[in-house]
Amino acid sequence: MAKVGVVYKVYPKQDVDADTLMGKIKSELSPVSISAEDIAFGIKVIKAFFTYDDSEQGSSTMEEKLNGIDGVAQVEVDEESLI
């Protein structure tokens, strides 16, 4: 069975601190790694990396879980590949 690695870009809502949101994501979903990157004018995007078995779930399932966290404005898949 193959393993899938997915990096998600998570955009915080305008009034939400990226570091606080990273803490929520860590505690609720346990990503392999997570970091914040500046994109422009003090706006940050969070990149969260997850792995799972190919048959276990699709990337859309994790995307839905990320969207369900309070403070998340938008989620998109940045990279996805077999590992």
Rank of each mutant, 00 (worst) to 15 (best):
64 E>A: 13
22 M>V: 02
45 V>Q: 11
69 I>R: 06
22 M>I: 04
37 E>S: 10
45 V>K: 13
69 I>C: 06
76 E>Y: 01
54 D>L: 14
74 Q>W: 02
77 V>R: 03
37 E>Q: 09
50 F>D: 08
39 I>K: 08
62 M>F: 06
49 F>R: 15
83 I>C: 10
8 Y>C: 09
25 I>D: 02
47 K>P: 04
74 Q>E: 12
21 L>V: 03
3 K>C: 00
52 Y>F: 15
68 G>M: 05
9 K>C: 03
61 T>A: 12
52 Y>I: 11
22 M>T: 01
23 G>P: 01
52 Y>L: 13
74 Q>M: 09
56 E>K: 14
55 S>A: 12
64 E>K: 12
55 S>H: 09
78 D>F: 06
5 G>Y: 04
82 L>R: 13
35 S>L: 10
43 I>H: 08
3 K>A: 06
43 I>D: 08
4 V>S: 05
22 M>R: 06
35 S>K: 15
82 L>N: 11
78 D>I: 01
2 A>Y: 03
83 I>K: 14
76 E>H: 01
24 K>S: 08
59 S>L: 08
79 E>V: 02
73 A>E: 13
72 V>N: 03
53 D>H: 09
62 M>W: 03
51 T>E: 15
81 S>L: 14
16 V>D: 00
70 D>M: 04
15 D>C: 01
82 L>Q: 12
19 D>K: 12
66 L>C: 02
42 G>H: 04
5 G>T: 13
17 D>T: 03
43 I>A: 08
48 A>D: 06
